[in-house]
Design a protein around this nucleic acid. Sequence first.
DNA 1: CACAATACCTTGCATTGCAAGGCATGATGT
DNA 2: ACATCATGCCTTGCAATGCAAGGTATTGTG
Lengths: 124, 124
Amino acid sequence: MDNEDSQDKWQIQLRKGALELVILAALRGPPVYGLAMLRHLQQFPTTAITEGTLYPLLDRLKREELVGADWIQDGDTRPRKYYRLTAKGERKFQALAASWRQSITDINALLTMPAGAPVDTQGS
Amino acid sequence: MDNEDSQDKWQIQLRKGALELVILAALRGPPVYGLAMLRHLQQFPTTAITEGTLYPLLDRLKREELVGADWIQDGDTRPRKYYRLTAKGERKFQALAASWRQSITDINALLTMPAGAPVDTQGS
DNA sequence: CACAATACCTTGCATTGCAAGGCATGATGT
DNA sequence: ACATCATGCCTTGCAATGCAAGGTATTGTG
């Protein structure tokens, strides 16, 4: 239950998937701490979220073991909580990225296709 | 308030926007009735929704005057409720399509860019 | 009459995104 | 020493969403 096959009807939910996707994407490289990631995402209007969105989501990803976190003290500054991708998170990222691409394809198809005229009817 | 400029923070909400977008897209052509539209959307996994999703959403779009509806009797069959796009809906569709394209661009950018390494650092 | 198919619509629940606010720690000024 | 500000993490409470499940009405078939 709830393994990475849970795209059961999750391709449908690009609404939920999109944010999760970009967060996992942000963590592919070196570990990042919360506020840094927030600033990273705020570069783009589409992903300009706030702390109230980010931290609960990171919590969920951690409960699902897609990300891990370590408190690291960086020289002088106060310790920060650095997040990183687990192996499971890596796989999930690949899967989500794939269904993201599929969704784009599907939606683009619908954007060029009204419901009224399925295949047909344009002169002969 | 709540005119079509309400993309206040709506680019962020491609989650909500995506479904709304494809429904408006489906109605650009000739009018369509509910279940026909459902089958149309079910062609693609991404948009395979159910009646419990579609009808409340169509209600909302109607309240917002983005779509209109008429009962039409089609020869023999029972009357069906045909939905169509209003002028306002047409404009909304254009706006949503534009922010959809923007979102795709943004997310694709993030998909090729981990948070750790802003601009740099590959060899010299 | 019963039964199924078509078509529209509603109820109730879990989940989401978010504004707003609350800690705690370190840096800075006097 | 003390107050103040900035940084960083996290929580509470609300409105909105998507959906499974069920309900109603009409038409057709036996």
